[in-house]
């Protein structure tokens, strides 16, 4: 496959960025999007140019590092992470636009790399339980109703990639915060700190400069892990009851 890429290049957080056009050839349809970028970077290094900076880690769709907006869609045209997006979803001769996550709370570090530590600070303000848990307890020591376990697990799937924020027209982190709050609040271990957790995480989310939710549903559509939009309703309910 031969492709034309238009990639956002930005040397640093305060430097002005711009789209730069690149031609890549010899791309196989089996390659992942990141492998395609690796191929381009190898060529750039050989010609003495700076390679394109992008985040990546596990490359198996579970770490959430590889965030980028491809043709206006977070993680590209398939509902998966960029590392699991394969070039067979593009056609030979396509022009592909690649941009970083766009949100005030996620400043660009370099090229396609953004600073997502705002998410860490939201987690840090209540996305845990304070009781020392020691080693893994006996599975039946704390009974968890099936419904609660399913609800918690569905929301625990969040990998914190930030696609929800990137896709939201308001740069809102409600789906991310909802995933964490609902996951912990649904379980007996998380119940004692339910009120403080919900208040504290929402307060941090607001303080980080994320926008508000206008229920457009873009976040849940973009989420590679399928966190449901209904999680936001559950977060709202918990917050309103405990404010």
């Amino acid at each position: 496959m031969n492709l034309t890429l238009r990639i956002w290049r930005q040397t640093g957080p305060d430097a002005p960025g711009a789209l730069t056009r690149y031609q890549v050839s010899g791309i196989s349809p089996e390659m992942s999007f990141l492998e395609m970028l690796d191929t381009l970077n190898e060529e750039l290094i050989l010609t003495g140019e700076q390679p394109i900076a992008f985040d990546h880690d596990c490359r198996e769709g579970i770490c959430g590092a590889c965030g980028m907006v491809i043709n206006g869609q977070a993680h590209g045209p398939e509902r998966t992470t960029t590392c699991q997006l394969h070039m067979r979803h593009f056609r030979d001769g396509d022009t592909i636009d690649v941009e970083p996550w766009r949100a005030a709370a996620f400043p660009v570090v370099k090229d396609l790399v953004v600073d997502r530590s705002a998410f860490d600070r939201i987690i840090g303000s209540g996305g845990y339980i304070t009781a020392p848990t020691g080693s893994a307890p006996e599975a039946h020591a704390t009974p968890v109703p099936k419904e609660a376990a399913d609800l918690a697990f569905e929301h625990a799937e969040c990998i914190g990639c930030g696609a929800c924020v990137a896709a939201c027209p308001n740069g809102s982190a409600m789906l991310f915060t909802a995933a964490k709050v609902v996951h912990l609040n649904a379980l007996p271990q998380g119940a004692p700190e339910r009120a403080t957790r919900t208040r504290s995480m929402v307060a941090t989310m607001d303080a980080e400069g994320f926008g508000g939710c206008t229920n457009t549903g873009e976040c849940a559509t973009a989420c590679p892990k399928g966190i449901p939009l209904s999680g936001i309703s559950l977060l709202n309910r918990d917050f309103l009851r405990r404010a």
Binding site: Q73, E99, R102, A104, A105, G209, G211
Partner: peptide
């Protein structure tokens, strides 16, 4: 809320998706 939302997303993407 609208002012906050506009500040939270200062830069648009090249492609405007019409999902909503």
């Amino acid at each position: 809320l609208s002012r906050r939302d506009l500040r939270a997303r200062p830069q648009k993407y090249l492609h405007q998706r019409r999902q909503a």
